[in-house]
């Protein structure tokens, strides 16, 4: 079973895990407190001035103190936009993973417990979903929906990511169902609801958290990619992908800061999450599929 003291001891002895977690914590605090730290509010369109567009960072000639990392082509401060963009990344990542977790766990529980036709149906749908890349499905859903914003992105990503939770949950439930305490509960006349919520769910849910930790990095990359392609968040709300998309064409004019800083932040964020997720998976070593 899970041994907290051993887990913490291993964690504190792994410099990779500790530094990744520290970076993530800093990013998370910066993103949550973005309104406090950010010099400007990039959502407030009235504060944008086109005369401020493409200003270099403050340490370069022509830079100004009020825009520490310079401005993009809309006159938005890049530091502020990155802080708010990270907020969007975390929000969408957490929202989509949470939703996929809940839907997948519920379906897996139902499929594993009741079996039969329902199980076959859910399994078939999961098979079909797995035969297409998640990225393609989410992109097509968003392309069809023609709605832009955080909610459609969360829904589209969750709609493609629930499958693995369902699979893992179903496997766990099948394994638990064979054990004697479930038999005992049945014999004692416990209702289906009681068996599911009091016995099966608490004993099968643990490995799903590791899947969620690994998925979080993938979902953040996916959101950035979708926003980069222009089907994720709209232009008026900053996200890391959108900032990179609108910034990279200025590379040809050797204006590097609108793309460099968001790209750097995204790369560090994703690497930190993946390294931590990787460590977590090795540490807890669950049967993933």
């Amino acid at each position: 079973m899970f041994d907290r003291a051993r887990f913490l001891r291993h964690f504190s002895r792994s410099p990779l895990a500790v530094s990744s977690a520290a970076i993530l914590l800093v990013f998370l605090v910066a993103a949550v407190c973005a309104p406090l730290f950010a010099p400007h509010d990039p959502y407030d369109l009235t504060s944008l001035q086109l005369t401020d567009r493409l200003k270099p960072p403050m340490w370069m000639p022509g830079g100004s103190d009020s825009f520490p990392l310079g401005t993009d082509d809309q006159g938005r401060g890049i530091l502020s936009a990155i802080l708010y963009g990270m907020r969007a990344s975390f929000l969408i990542g957490a929202g989509a993973v949470f939703l996929a977790f809940c839907v997948g766990a519920a379906l897996g529980l139902v499929a594993g417990f009741f079996g039969g036709r329902l199980d076959a149906l859910i399994g078939r749908v999961a098979d079909v979903m797995l035969s297409f890349p998640a990225f393609l499905l989410a992109l097509l859903l968003l392309g069809i929906a023609r709605q832009r914003g955080a909610i459609p992105v969360i829904l589209a990503i969750a709609a493609t990511f629930w499958v693995r939770y369902c699979r893992v949950m179903r496997g766990n439930v099948l394994r638990e169902s064979k054990k004697e305490y479930i038999e005992a509960a049945k014999v004692m006349g416990a209702s289906h609801m009681r068996i599911i919520f009091r016995h099966l769910l608490p004993n099968s849910v643990a490995t799903l958290f590791v899947v969620a930790a690994v998925d979080l990095g993938m979902v953040i990359v996916l959101e950035a990619t979708l926003s980069f392609l222009g089907v994720g968040l709209p232009l008026t709300s900053p996200s890391l992908g959108m900032l990179i998309a609108s910034g990279y064409q200025y590379l040809y004019a050797s204006i590097w800061w609108p793309v460099f800083f968001p790209a750097l932040v995204l790369a560090i964020l994703v690497l930190a999450i993946n390294l931590l997720g990787d460590w977590l998976r090795r540490e807890l070593n669950p049967r993933m599929y």
Binding site: V221, T225, G241, I244, L251, A263, L266, A267, L271
Partner: peptide, 15 residues
């Protein structure tokens, strides 16, 4: 290569 988004690597290569 597994962690970084494709579009970041592409932009880096172009640069």
């Amino acid at each position: 290569g597994i962690s970084l988004p494709t579009f970041l690597i592409a932009i880096l290569c172009i640069y």
